[in-house]
Design a protein around this nucleic acid. Structure first.
Lengths: 342, 342
DNA sequence: GAGAAGAATAGAAACGTTTCCAAATTAATC
DNA sequence: GATTAATTTGGAAACGTTTCTATTCTTCTC
């Protein structure tokens, strides 16, 4: 077996072999309709026989792009992010783009470093879910961003496209459902005020009580972080109080893992002892002894939309104003909720 | 707020402003010890005031590299791959590399396309878990690969570095454990012969019976795919046979999801009706009403090792022979196995 | 078949770096 | 202070493409 070796063929080699100029070879590749059929076939033959493939680095250099987009999130092990990545990737790849995946571990410094790096000739655009909408370092960078980008599920008062979820409506609906089942002591565990999902979910939750003319159980609102640990800690605490909640909304797929861990550890049975509602489809939510009732959202559509917004800016160099698209949620009934016993 | 606009500063601008030549600016950046302190500070000041950052595209072009590595797998929603990605990424990023994530959906054509793309100036190396060790298209490309790469958990008779897992030992141990608990009708569901984990797991499984002088339950070996669907289908079938297995090894984290779905649907109780062993840590395995006994492996170490093998080839241009590193597994006891009732 | 218009091609410049070689400067030696 | 050696610097070439301008070749029209 002959090992392929030596330099790869360049456009000059192709020109030499086919007896035309480099310009013509280039046009044969990028605008074949402008070169005569005879010439074209000579060029194509040379390309074939040399196994020529254009060098992306040189193309990037000359075209001033990279056909690369950064996808920045806190943790790719979060199944929602993974699904979203796949949706964005599918859409972008089909247009020739590749994605850098950057998992920042939730650290603001890594986030800032990622944006810096991507901006300086490594990517043509960014799709990101930043960690904290108030972080000064990140904000500063977003403000001076020189490549187009799309925020996923984050809301910042800057001219940046965003794809959002109607979390408030989702939570209102879920809470309403529980109230309808007779629950009053309903707990919610979710992200903090520093990101939109946290704010909106709590807002929807509160509104549901208010619309029903019921007092809001302020003591049962635990809004701070989306982490497994936070879910575990708060669920544990809530389950140990005197006046235990009869229902709980684990609003965040990582939170759910923590909550289930706590539930298991405390020997609480679902839905016998506690009604439970989760957010977002995940193996765990669909499987935990019986599927959990959950607030779903269309992750593929969300990802695809993000990709499309970005592509609009990358290809049609339309300088349109920033756009915000919001997707509705759907309550999917599982077996984790019961009417409250009288 | 003044919008950053106009062309980004180039090394020529820096040279002009600081009154030195472009060569000196370049050396100030890449080999500061070769330029006099006075000159260096003039250059640095110019860089500062212009906000200059070298253009990656031009660097890539000139240096003939990309500081990019491709990470190719079938599905990033598989939590094991996600963890592995993070480990590889952490190691590579610290050396300045970024990772393209390519999730091929298990399609050989996408896999081949990914390798093609990465080779031609888009990446300096590849870390991959191919889908089928016998696929002609993929093999062909690997044979002619012009950039270094590392295989994860795959075994191909080519000169390519690989990081493996001692699946056979793991399975032998797990099977032994079940045999020790009195089980004889033990089922295994895992990948097919076309990938190493499938072969090795079955081998370990078989060996355990043989070493114990017991007949191998050939009818309970279901070795074909790692997918959720396969797990579901086979588990369903196995649970419906007359002579039901008393224990089952779901050897693959996606398989486990399918198996649990089947178990749930059939109303089988774990470990009462069936002892269950899983492979690889995952939310589901750790959580399913009580943690499942599982065959664990050190994903961080595996990822880190893969990255290091690749870095050795990328940085020290050592032309050493291909290396294969294998990591052991550990049986972690959960609550999903019981001695068989007499 | 001459002339003009249009289409196709050649060839050089440009993209922003790094690197190489030669020239210039500094330091060291006597 | 002259000579040599060592260090630092300037400037051009090179990386492989795309794109622009100018030239050549076709085709058409009368």
């Amino acid at each position: 077996m002959k090992k392929i070796t030596g330099k790869a063929a360049t456009i000059r080699d192709v020109a030499r072999v086919s007896g035309v100029s480099v310009g013509t070879v280039s046009r044969s590749l990028n605008a074949p309709e402008t070169v005569r059929p005879g010439t074209l076939s000579k060029v194509r033959q040379a390309i074939q026989s040399l196994g020529f493939q254009p060098d992306f680095r040189a193309q990037n250099m000359r075209r001033r792009n990279t056909m690369t987009v950064g996808f920045v999130i806190d943790d790719i092990a979060n199944p929602w992010h993974a699904s979203c990545f796949k949706a964005v990737d599918a859409e972008m790849r089909q247009r020739g783009y590749s994605l850098y995946l950057i998992s920042t571990n939730g650290r603001a410094s890594e986030e800032a470093a990622a944006i810096d790096m991507l901006q300086h000739g490594r990517a043509d655009g960014i799709v990101m879910t930043i960690n904290n909408e108030q972080d000064a370092r990140t904000i500063k960078r977003l403000k001076e961003l020189r490549i187009p980008s799309v925020l996923l599920d984050r809301d910042i008062p800057l001219e940046i496209d965003a794809v959002l979820t109607e979390h408030a409506t989702g939570l209102r609906q879920a809470t309403n459902y529980l109230i309808g089942l007779g629950h009053r002591r309903i707990a919610i565990i979710t992200a903090g005020n520093d990101i939109r999902p946290g704010r909106e979910r709590v807002r929807g939750f509160v509104e549901a009580f208010e619309k029903n003319g019921l007092p809001v159980p302020e003591d049962l609102i635990r809004s701070q972080s989306l982490s497994v640990d936070f879910g575990f800690r708060e669920a544990t605490a809530l389950l140990q109080t005197q006046n235990r909640p009869t229902a709980m909304i684990a609003a965040g797929n990582r939170i759910l893992v923590g909550v289930l861990r706590a539930i298991q550890q405390q020997g609480v049975s679902i839905p016998g002892d506690l009604s439970l509602i989760a957010c977002d489809r995940s193996d765990v939510a669909l499987l935990y002894p019986g599927p959990i009732t959950l607030i779903d959202r269309p992750v593929e559509e969300i990802g695809r939309t993000a990709a499309q917004l970005l592509l609009e800016r990358l290809e049609g160099q339309s300088e349109r104003p920033a756009q915000r698209v919001a997707f509705p949620t759907h309550l999917i009934l599982g077996g984790s909720c019961l009417p409250i016993a009288r």
